[in-house]
Design a protein around this nucleic acid. Sequence first.
DNA 1: TAACTGACCGCCG
DNA 2: ACGGCGGCCAGTT
Length: 111
Amino acid sequence: MSEKNNNFFQDVWEVVKLIPKGRVASYGDIAAYLGSKNGARMVGWAMNASHMLEDVPAHRVVNKKGLLTGKHHFDETNKMQTLLENEGIEIIDNQIQDLDKVKWNPNTELL
DNA sequence: TAACTGACCGCCG
DNA sequence: ACGGCGGCCAGTT
């Protein structure tokens, strides 16, 4: 951590913060919005750093399958699922149901 | 200093 | 149709 790292991370967090309640975004879409084609991995890495932030709903960020891959990184293992269910998202076995409804694309809806 | 890892995605076999 | 591997950027060891 030097000083210039916040650029990419801040951008990721900004997009994540824009995710509407009851919706979820995928790493790939966020990465694509940032300009990185395959930078999805780094988005997840940015999420890891977002733990020290409060305004970043990392629980709304899932993989393209709608699977809560990063739930294990939360304070509590089922915290992520609980938060999503609290927003009206149905989740079964770490898999988001009705993903097509809750799916949110920054490039499409965040124009 | 160089190499590996990481909450992923997409292609090739 | 399913499985395995490489690739992207940056941080960590």
